[in-house]
Design a protein around this nucleic acid. Structure first.
Lengths: 135, 135
DNA sequence: CTTGACTCCGTACCAAGGTACGGACCGTAG
DNA sequence: CTACGGTCCGTACCTTGGTACGGAGTCAAG
């Protein structure tokens, strides 16, 4: 298995070359050995690393959190329980976001229910509510 | 009712002075008449306008969307139904966000369930999943 | 009339997660 | 050997919703 050049890694991992550079700057992707010319030579595992990042992102982890997860992985003495704890915190975050959005949904829903969609703008219950006339 | 100076409006509306300047730049808050000295003289209604913005924000509207709502209000021929439509689109957005977050929640929940929190990091099911080992 | 608080303006900065650009250099196919 | 595409680097730019700063000018209380 040959090392990968930046463009090859980007292609295999399904991201932009610029994104790789960005991840490197952010400390998510370690800088690989470089040739004399400066060309980076990524090991094959880098593809997995990028995919790890992308998966974690899909699960709602921020890049900062992902960097922490990656740091956990290489620190001695870190246990599975630490990773689990991070994940549980994230579940709690996500649940809070869901609760907040549901409150918003209910409020908006109440607004659309009060508005028949008829009548002039000056009597629109939605705008009235936003202006604080009612409630 | 005297006109309000920037600081007074900010105080009454519960926002920062800088925020008012920001809203003005963004086209949410029309630039009021100004004295010779440049001092702005806001009409009392501006307090309501800022509160409108803040309420709409709490309901998940972005500043851009709020600007559109405000534009709707002053355009002739716009009906209550237009406002209702905007609100309904927003409800749909919010519902989609909730669905997405629920999918994330389920996925994270599955991960924490598979992880007993014991054992070495090298066998952590959470990290394994993120790396694509399983599934 | 002085002085401290307020206001003006442009601009820079923050977070997050990238994308884009330009000039210089490299590498390889033809 | 040359030409084209890939890569390097630093930097600027984008979005969203603001916050902060600094110098100059202004207002109003004492």
């Amino acid at each position: 298995m040959q090392p990968l050049k930046t463009g090859e890694l980007a292609k295999r991992a399904g991201v932009n070359v610029e994104t790789l550079r960005f991840y490197e700057r952010k400390g998510l992707l370690p800088r690989p050995p470089q040739r004399e010319s400066g060309y980076r030579e990524y090991p094959q595992e880098s593809v997995r690393l990028i995919r790890f990042i992308k998966r974690a992102q899909e699960l709602g982890f921020s890049l900062k959190e992902i960097r922490e997860l990656l740091t956990l992985k290489v620190q001695p003495g870190v246990t599975c329980a630490d990773v689990r704890e991070t994940t549980e915190r994230k579940v709690a975050d996500v649940r809070k976001k869901i609760r907040d959005l549901k409150a918003i949904e209910r409020a908006l829903q109440r607004l659309t229910v009060t508005c028949m969609g008829r009548g002039p703008l000056s009597e629109c219950p939605i705008l009235e509510h936003l202006e604080g006339e009612i409630l």
